[in-house]
Design a protein around this nucleic acid. Structure first.
Length: 379
RNA sequence: GCGAUUGUGGUGUAGCGGUUAACACAGCGGGUUGUGGUCCCGUCAUGCGUGGGUUCGAAUCCCAUCAGUCGCC
């Protein structure tokens, strides 16, 4: 018995995009959905109550970071990450595979696992598939991830082939080490870069292992949008229809819409919260850099079409002022807005799918934001 | 009034005979995709109080002048 149940409720007659419901131990959520990232058991500057209020479903946390601080035992002692941070909803932890990739200084990848340096004190750390799952079992998120290698882009075919094969062996080891399959859904991660046969090999082998869901990894690492969409195609094509798919680390408007069109159900990204902290906002009018002088005396809302607390109560001039002064409230109000923007985009996409007009919806959004379908900056 | 001392971008400073006048902050513009990072990148003084002079060459030396600061009358 799996921890989650995925129910596909409708397939758009116009586009073939799908929507559904994910039943989790901490409640039901609708797909396709965007999932805010809260690396250290906190979505930076935003409280769990605020996340709920703007319609967040699943939120992420991170194995590597919680392992280092405060330590998985403390999170377990608190009653799991949901109780620890008081988030009354489903959560997902990334395995730490991406951190090994992004904190790449002097890392060594072996069959057994990865040796690398702590970003906090430089000490040597070791993470393996078993260790990652063991930590995730203690952290207690509803969705947990296999420990994979997120290979750099571009990688040679030979490197990627070896990497994928190892990632598959790691997936098997992680699955065997998983102690709580009835409470936590472990996803396998499809790698393989831009090579179709490697994506196919990876997806099909994972499918044989029968995971409750599948992630698509190795995207948003420097490749073009066109290449990213191919990577998605080459992965989704070989995955079982009835299981949820999660495109890791993708959060620009265009890529989310292209992902939904390709039957991806879950997305996460630090983009909305990171750019918000630095003053860039996703709005119905396109990208807004709140630092610009033109907003100095602009006493209108950030986005007139947005229903978030920031847009209902504050002006661009004030947000600009907070950002210029480095005040935390600015980061907070703008993070809330950007998250609401992507959560609303998910809601609108689901509605369009249910009404069999997702194709039109996607085209309208691209037109509205001045995006092109293959290679654009997005937001 | 006399003496000393200091005048370099919006700000604080570095440079003390040959630099593309350096650095930081502020300003302006851009970036950010399974979050190490309130972070990264670009741009910003045709000019060193002003006027002369010395020198191949002056922000740097000399003279005058103006302004500030500190003493003494």
């Amino acid at each position: 018995m799996s921890a989650i149940k995925f129910e596909i409720t409708h397939v758009c007659k116009q586009s073939g995009a799908r929507c559904g419901i994910l039943h989790t131990p901490h409640g039901d959520v609708e797909t396709p959905m965007f999932m805010p990232v809260g690396t250290l058991a906190t979505v930076k500057y935003v409280s769990p109550e605020e996340l709920k209020a703007i319609g967040a479903g699943v939120i992420l946390s991170n194995t590597y970071h919680l392992w280092l601080r405060p330590g998985e035992d403390i999170v377990a002692e608190a009653g799991g990450v949901q109780k620890f941070m008081n988030y009354n909803g489903p959560m997902l932890t990334d395995s730490g595979g991406f951190q090994v990739f992004s904190l790449a200084d002097s890392r060594k990848i072996h069959e057994e696992g990865v040796t690398f340096k702590s970003h906090l004190d430089g000490s040597t750390l070791f993470l393996s598939p078993e260790k990652s799952i063991q930590i995730q079992n203690k952290i207690g998120a509803d969705f947990i991830m296999s420990f994979d290698e997120c290979a750099p882009y571009p990688s040679t075919y030979d490197y990627m082939k070896n990497s994928v094969e190892r990632t598959l062996r790691w997936a098997k080891r992680g699955k065997e080490a998983h102690q709580r399959p009835e409470e936590q859904a472990l996803f396998g991660i499809v790698q393989g870069g831009e090579f179709e046969d490697l994506r196919k090999l990876c997806a099909e082998t994972l499918a044989e292992m029968d995971f409750p869901g599948y992630s698509i990894g190795g995207t948003s690492v420097g490749e073009s949008k066109e290449t990213m969409y191919k990577m998605i195609d080459y992965s989704v094509k070989y995955l079982p229809w009835e299981k949820p798919r999660y495109l890791m680390g993708v959060g620009s408007v265009d890529a989310i819409l292209e992902g939904i069109a390709r039957n991806v159900d879950m997305f996460d990204c630090v983009l909305p919260t990171r750019i918000a902290r630095h003053g860039t906002l996703m709005t119905s009018q396109g990208r807004v850099n709140i630092k610009r002088k033109e907003y100095e005396r602009d006493f209108t809302p950030l986005d007139p079409e947005c229903d978030c607390p920031t847009c209902r109560n504050y002006t661009k001039a004030y947000l600009r002022h907070l950002n210029k002064c480095g005040e935390g409230l600015g980061a907070r109000l703008m993070s809330i807005h950007n998250l609401r923007f992507l959560l609303k985009l998910s809601e609108d996409a689901r509605k369009a799918i249910k009404e069999d007009r997702f194709g039109d919806f996607k085209n309208e959004m691209f037109k509205k934001y001045g995006l092109n379908s293959v290679d654009s900056r997005g937001f």
